[in-house]
Design a protein around this nucleic acid. Sequence first.
DNA 1: TCTAAAAATGAGTGATTACTCACTTCAATT
DNA 2: AATTGAAGTGAGTAATCACTCATTTTTAGA
Lengths: 215, 215
Amino acid sequence: MTEEELMLQQLFDEDKLTDKQKKIIVAAIETFSEKGYAASSTSEIAKKAGVAEGTIFRHYKTKKELLISIVAPLMTKFIAPIVVKDFNKVLDREFETVEEFLRATIENRRDLLIRMLPVVKIMFQEIPFQPELREQFFDLIVKNIFIRVEKVIKGYQDKGLLIDMPPESIARLTITNILGFLFSRYILFPHLEWDDELEIERTIQFIMHGVGKKD
Amino acid sequence: MTEEELMLQQLFDEDKLTDKQKKIIVAAIETFSEKGYAASSTSEIAKKAGVAEGTIFRHYKTKKELLISIVAPLMTKFIAPIVVKDFNKVLDREFETVEEFLRATIENRRDLLIRMLPVVKIMFQEIPFQPELREQFFDLIVKNIFIRVEKVIKGYQDKGLLIDMPPESIARLTITNILGFLFSRYILFPHLEWDDELEIERTIQFIMHGVGKKD
DNA sequence: TCTAAAAATGAGTGATTACTCACTTCAATT
DNA sequence: AATTGAAGTGAGTAATCACTCATTTTTAGA
């Protein structure tokens, strides 16, 4: 929770927020993540934040605006760095093998994903019900990721390291496997004992077998 | 919707339910699926079912009992057939290749999955918040599926058709890919244009490359 | 056709909901 | 020290919530 707060401070200190405003955001994330958006009451969030309920509505016209104001900037500020930074880094570094590229991508951002899990959970919970979020998610993340991932894939295809399947399918299948692992691991069955390193390694191997070219 | 009702009648006709009880269940599924459990009101469900609100509470003590009574039997009666029937069928028929097995499994049950989508959506929405459902889901489905899938996998491994990765990992990765496709296709981005047959074929190919042994 | 149990009703319950607003406190500038 | 605008407050509001219960309607066996 302490690391997450640091993360949140970094995320929100551009606009100068008061202590109470930050507490509201932290409390809202915690509550939305635990109970879901609809089952969370503004009075509970206010209580948890140590703030009067009216204070919430001074800064956010509605409860939904509170939700959006949490999720939307995190989509641009948290997900975008994953896409842009890492993939630019990758494009700069030019890994020699796809395995290295996958391992770097997954491991590099796994801890961050774990720390941001409450927010990610909110995102996936609410996207099916909030059209605004769905559109934002699609425009900001899906399109961007796919465009960039496809470029990377084409690069490796040109080097003869990946099979000739259309890049968008390779992208979909690769992302499916990475997210599928994280989803099972941290959202569906977090109570099971997992050997993370081993499962990541197997996921990479599986992807590589699936789309890599044999020597 | 008509086919779904037939399906529901089959599912629930063991207990003799009145017309109104069936209408309540259908309306509850529709509402829960559209808005989520917490955002659905019993008055709305009653209205949609053409029934007095009191009638709901004659048959279900609480709103949560209504949810459980919908999801729980469907976990045993809908998911179990997929596992038991198809996999027994598979064990009886003994497909010669894993591809045929995968294709049969996916295509055979895809239409059913699509028709049951509202319920599946409810399941995945509420499992993170309802411990009862999560435990049931795990005991009834995950354990069962994995035990049976692992048997099938071992069979194919003995025949030299699958690589030597531990069966539970092959099971996890295979299921991840199938569910990952269905999740992207029908829950996250149903509004996109999809070439279903093509994507299924690619998913199968991907799985096969990932875990199949080369001739 | 009569009767008794089951099914269905809908007005009514207190609790909780998101949200408002008149008011107070705080912080910064002059 | 006075002023001012923003931040914060919390009692209050109408609406809605899940749920109850006395009553009526329907169903089914004798």
